[in-house]
Amino acid sequence: MKAHVHITLKNGVLDPQGKAVQNALGALGFEGVGNVRQGKYMEIDLDESDPAKARASLEAMCEKLLANTVIENYKIDLEA
């Protein structure tokens, strides 16, 4: 089973890199670009066929290592 994990900064956490990307897009002439927030995306292959067990295991991974829950949220999508 393959998992897609998105890690994003929580609302209210300053994202200077996102801001720099936003400014760069403006400088390139792209109009109408609003707030940009950057984050991380991971694909993880798992030897697990039970979606509930896979999700529980991925949540533990996110809590322990993949995300820093002081500043980041995570979203787990499982590929059917």
């Binding site: 956490v13 300053l14 200077p16 890199q17 720099a20 820093n68 002081v70 500043i71």
Partner: peptide, 17 residues
Amino acid sequence: LTEAHLLPGALMRNAGL
């Protein structure tokens, strides 16, 4: 220390990058 939860908070990218 923050990542190990021995101290609270987090150290993020410098605001000026």
